[in-house]
Computed example of a mutant assay.
Amino acid sequence: MFAILSAGIAPAFALMAFFYLKDRFTEPLGLIIRIFTYGALLVFPIMFLQYAFQAEGIVTSPVINSFILGGLIEEFFKWFIFIYVIYHHTEFDAHYDGIVYAVAISLGFATVENLLYLLTNGIGYAFSRALFPVSSHALFAVSMGYYFGKAKLNQQHRKRNMMFALVVPFLLHGTYNYILKTITSDWLFLLIPFMIVLWVYSLRKVKIANQQPTHNLILQEKQRA
């Protein structure tokens, strides 16, 4: 049991540390833990909704299953929690902060999901789960946080960027699910390149966000103008 708990939690903590330590102005750990916990609690209402749709036989198409039942529902709940809990928080004052908080929400979700999977299927899946599902959740969140950061710092295009904060991770998540659910053989030949591109894309977003000034600095510059 201890081995499964360790294997289930370790990937999320490693990824959280990676993105957290890239922040030029580190965020309060207490707030990160709080956001992480909200993400973890999301697993249960999402699982209930997904089970209800499947039990009723409402979802039969692989496309709908991958993009709507998986990608849209999961990313919408994360997006909603971000807006409700952190978007208006005073600690969210820099572009990169959006990435840190979105990753915290997503990895909270991924940790509980991973633990439940390993408890059901065994520790033998720990490495592949860490490499693909857990890391992919973190990378989807990078896009969400990147566009939330843009929305926070640029009020002129706030609504558009908040929409992108949902649409981009939803499409990435849906594509990931579709590869897993529809490619019965040689799926790794599609998934590995997809993950490489996703990592490159996400690290590029991290670099851009880290180069932007804080929200307070932008306000000060506007006041001087």
Score class of each variant (00 low, 15 high):
L131H: 03
Q156M: 10
M144C: 11
S128N: 11
Y38S: 02
I68H: 02
G70W: 06
F13L: 15
L190P: 00
T120S: 05
N121K: 07
E74C: 11
F82N: 03
L116Q: 04
L69C: 02
Q50K: 09
A126Q: 00
L153A: 04
V142H: 08
G70A: 15
V103W: 01
L29A: 08
P45S: 10
I196S: 04
T214M: 14
H88Y: 12
A130R: 01
V134C: 04
M163C: 04
M47H: 01
L188H: 12
S6I: 14
S202Y: 02
N114S: 13
F127D: 03
E113V: 07
F77Y: 12
M163N: 04
Y87L: 11
M163P: 00
F2L: 13
L191P: 11
I9D: 01
G145R: 05
T184K: 14
F48P: 03
G108S: 10
F127A: 14
A17M: 12
F76Y: 15
D186Y: 15
F80Q: 10
Q50E: 11
R24G: 13
A55D: 14
A126K: 01
F13P: 06
V197F: 15
A126M: 00
F19W: 13
F76H: 01
A209L: 09
L72T: 04
E27S: 13
F127Y: 13
G8R: 02
E56T: 01
N161H: 12
A165G: 08
L131G: 04
Q156C: 02
H95N: 12
P213K: 09
G57T: 12
V103G: 00
L41Y: 10
F77C: 13
Y51C: 00
S128F: 14
E221R: 15
Y125P: 00
R160V: 06
Y87P: 00
I9G: 02
A102P: 04
I192Q: 06
L180I: 15
L188P: 05
N121Q: 05
M1S: 08
V168S: 09
A12E: 04
F48H: 04
P213D: 11
N121F: 10
L42H: 02
A110F: 08
V112W: 03
T37Q: 05
L166M: 06
A10Y: 07
R160S: 07
L107P: 09
R204M: 13
R129H: 08
P45L: 09
R158I: 00
D186I: 11
W199Y: 15
D23W: 11
I99S: 08
S136K: 03
F44V: 12
F48K: 05
F25K: 14
L203Q: 11
F82I: 07
L203C: 12
L217I: 08
Y147P: 04
T111M: 13
V59K: 05
L180A: 11
T120R: 08
S61V: 08
A130C: 07
M162Y: 01
I58P: 03
G71M: 10
